[in-house]
């Protein structure tokens, strides 16, 4: 067994895992608060990537430095995707707040199909090249074969997002309101929390992190089309379930477990079975730990 190859796969797995984790956060938060699997979440990630592509294409005519373009494009993507997320909640989920859960789920699938086809119409089904805007960092030169700059940026950004996220949930007023709403929605209202605001903020936050994931992975892979959100969304959903849906640390852990499994699986066994590994591990976890790695086993009171 080759040591460098192992490290390469490991870092590759972490990179994938970061992206899955970023998307899975949105799934798990929304589920934690309104018990809805937001199947349109992958589409938000795709829209984030497209927004960055459009903004950076426009800005490339201005002759700005690539780094600046990348940063502006990323911010635009985050803002725009957050807007999409909030609008989606308002028109597709809010009217169904008191409806049976299945109705909201169907609405989510409808939203997903709508967004995919809307982007298909606007952007065609061809893969669009995503500009390589991140310049190579000099200090990564010696280990270029193992980890390139984009991977490095992905890992660092994800780490920063996770830390900010944790602080936000743990210490801010909105974070406390989110935790309270997730635990008991009626009681949260009775202590004066406006749950509409909390739910909207949850979608905003989830969409923003998904968009960050979208921008990062697109600059890593270099091309995007209207369909990238589907598989990424499903994989992130797997990550969220793997970690225990509703649990934020669980989503992060699930993302990394999934990314590493895929990376090692494709590296040591066969790359033909890339997606098989993801779903095989989901099935195994669901058999032995139905509530996920960090999920709480709910005991029903009799």
């Amino acid at each position: 067994m080759n040591g460098t190859y192992f490290i390469e796969l490991f870092l590759g797995g972490l990179t994938r895992g970061s992206i899955y984790a970023l998307i899975a956060l949105g799934y798990t938060m929304v589920y934690g608060i309104i018990q809805l699997i937001n199947f349109a979440h992958g589409e938000i990630y795709m829209i984030g990537a497209f927004t960055a592509l459009i903004v950076s294409s426009v800005l490339s005519f201005t002759g700005m430095s690539p780094v600046l373009i990348f940063i502006i494009a990323a911010i635009a993507a985050v803002v725009w995707a957050a807007g999409y997320g909030m609008t989606m909640e308002k028109i597709a989920y809010k009217p169904l707040r008191n409806a049976p859960r299945l109705s909201a789920l169907i609405s989510a699938i409808g939203m997903s199909l709508f967004l995919q086809n809307y982007v298909l119409l606007a952007q065609t089904s061809d893969f669009q090249p995503f500009p390589d805007l991140i310049p190579d960092l000099a200090f990564l030169k010696p280990i270029e074969t193992i980890m390139n700059t984009t991977q490095f940026i992905i890992l660092v950004t994800t780490a920063v997002v996770m830390v900010v996220f944790t602080l936000l949930i743990r210490y801010t007023k909105m974070g406390k309101a989110m935790r309270a709403t997730a635990q008991d929605m009626v009681m949260a209202q009775l202590v004066g929390i406006n749950i509409n605001k909390v739910i909207m903020f949850t979608f905003l936050l989830g969409s923003a992190t998904a968009a960050i994931g979208g921008v990062l992975i697109s600059s890593h892979i270099g091309q995007i089309n209207y369909y990238i959100g589907f598989l990424a969304g499903i994989k992130a959903f797997v990550a969220a379930v793997l970690g225990g849906i509703g649990s934020i640390p669980g989503a992060v852990l699930g993302g990394f477990v999934l990314g590493l499994t895929e990376s090692f699986g494709t590296g040591y066994i066969s790359s033909d079975y890339e997606d098989v590994f993801a779903f095989a591990i989901l099935i195994i976890i669901l058999i032995f730990r139905p509530s996920g790695l960090l999920g709480k086993t709910t005991r029903k009171k009799v």
Partner: peptide, 9 residues
């Protein structure tokens, strides 16, 4: 935290 949540109103 339980009490603070109420206070945030």
């Amino acid at each position: 935290e339980n009490v603070m949540i109420g206070r945030h109103t």
